[in-house]
Structure formats: C-alpha cells, structure tokens
Amino acid sequence: MGKKAQQPGTIATNRKARHDYHVLDTVEAGVVLMGTEVKSLRLGRVSVVDAFATIDDGEVWLRGLHITEYAFGTWTNHEPRRVRKLLLHRREITKLEMRVHEGGLSLVPLSMYFTEGRVKVELALVKGKKLWDKRAAVAERDAKREIAREFSRHVKGRRR
C-alpha cells in the first residue's frame, strides 16, 4: 500500500494583512522548523498576525511568528517567537531583495499551510495602505454587500 497523499490544509491566515496592505506579489516559501513546532502547527497553535520577513546576507528570515510551545514537549521544546529561516531559490531572493530596497516595500506572510506533509508560507510583497485607502475598501465592501442583498430581494420578489 502506498503513502496517502495529504491535501494541502491551511494552518493559519493573516486576514489583517489584506486590510492593512496592498498586495503586489506573492511567493511560496518553505520554513525550517523543529519537531515540536510541526506538532504545534498540526494542532493549529500559531499566530501570523505580527509576523514579517527580512532579508539578511542573502537569506530570508521570518520574524514575529508565534508558534505556541507543544504541550507534551519536554526539554526539547522550542522558543515560541524564535527567528525562522525561509527556503527560497537564490533567484527569488535577489528579485525580492531588489524590490524591497528600491520601493520601500515589505514582506508579510499571508498564510501558512501544509503541502505534501511540508509546511509552506505564502509570503507577500506589500505596500502599506493609507487611512483613506482602508476607508474606501470598507465602503466598497459594504456597497457590494448591499447590492447583493437588493438583488436577492428582487429575485425572490420581496419588497422592503
């Protein structure tokens, strides 16, 4: 009997990132983890809200990611907010580094998920939104919701 292929399952998403930033480009990266970190991730004990990535000496590092200590771990347990290395091809790293330094952009994780038993992070190249951009996005979302509501009422033949 062969090994059963695991469906990619989302561990955590950073919903706040899409509200606070304009997403310009995304890239998938692997994450270097310890054993107890993977066990905590399988239990969904992670927060990507405050996480960001930096490029130091040609390597990409994920900072601010909080993976809760594994409850059944011993002295081999991991540090919850340690800096974790991201795995990318050299070509991707240089391209991201050029865009970050020239345009004042940032690298923010959008989501973490399992793919074939490995933990991946969707890393986004982002530019910060201004306050009025956020207000416009909320107003647009509310308008779309109201249009959909009115259309639904019209289709069902109801009036206000």
Results as ranks from 00 to 15, higher is better:
residue 137 A to W: 00
residue 137 A to G: 11
residue 138 V to H: 07
residue 92 E to A: 14
residue 156 K to Y: 02
residue 7 Q to K: 12
residue 62 L to T: 01
residue 73 G to I: 03
residue 145 R to H: 12
residue 131 L to F: 11
residue 69 E to R: 11
residue 9 G to Y: 08
residue 57 D to Q: 14
residue 94 T to Q: 13
residue 128 G to K: 15
residue 16 K to F: 07
residue 111 S to W: 00
residue 97 E to D: 11
residue 67 I to Q: 04
residue 105 L to F: 15
residue 38 V to N: 05
residue 123 L to F: 06
residue 47 S to Q: 10
residue 17 A to F: 06
residue 67 I to N: 02
residue 33 L to E: 03
residue 111 S to M: 15
residue 99 R to D: 12
residue 58 G to I: 03
residue 135 R to G: 09
residue 130 K to G: 12
residue 80 P to H: 06
residue 95 K to A: 13
residue 10 T to W: 06
residue 112 M to K: 01
residue 115 T to M: 08
residue 58 G to Q: 04
residue 9 G to T: 15
residue 108 V to S: 05
residue 47 S to C: 08
residue 136 A to N: 13
residue 118 R to F: 08
residue 151 F to L: 14
residue 153 R to K: 15
residue 151 F to N: 15
residue 16 K to T: 10
residue 12 A to P: 01
residue 41 L to T: 01
residue 123 L to G: 02
residue 26 T to Y: 06
residue 114 F to R: 05
residue 82 R to G: 03
residue 59 E to D: 15
residue 19 H to K: 13
residue 136 A to D: 15
residue 112 M to R: 02
residue 76 T to K: 14
residue 37 E to S: 06
residue 5 A to M: 08
residue 111 S to Q: 15
residue 18 R to G: 07
residue 15 R to D: 10
residue 158 R to S: 06
residue 118 R to N: 08
residue 69 E to K: 12
residue 43 L to H: 12
residue 93 I to R: 04
residue 23 V to A: 07
residue 146 E to P: 01
residue 55 I to P: 02
residue 55 I to W: 05
residue 98 M to L: 11
residue 60 V to A: 06
residue 123 L to D: 01
residue 42 R to G: 10
residue 141 R to Y: 10
residue 10 T to C: 15
residue 144 K to I: 02
residue 38 V to A: 11
residue 152 S to E: 14
residue 7 Q to S: 11
residue 149 R to F: 07
residue 105 L to W: 13
residue 81 R to Q: 14
residue 27 V to E: 02
residue 30 G to N: 02
residue 66 H to I: 10
residue 94 T to A: 13
residue 126 V to C: 09
residue 144 K to V: 04
residue 128 G to H: 10
residue 143 A to C: 04
residue 77 N to Q: 09
residue 50 D to K: 10
residue 159 R to N: 11
residue 25 D to M: 12
residue 97 E to P: 00
residue 43 L to C: 05
residue 140 E to I: 06
residue 158 R to D: 09
residue 1 M to K: 12
residue 34 M to W: 09
residue 160 R to M: 07
residue 105 L to M: 13
residue 76 T to Y: 12
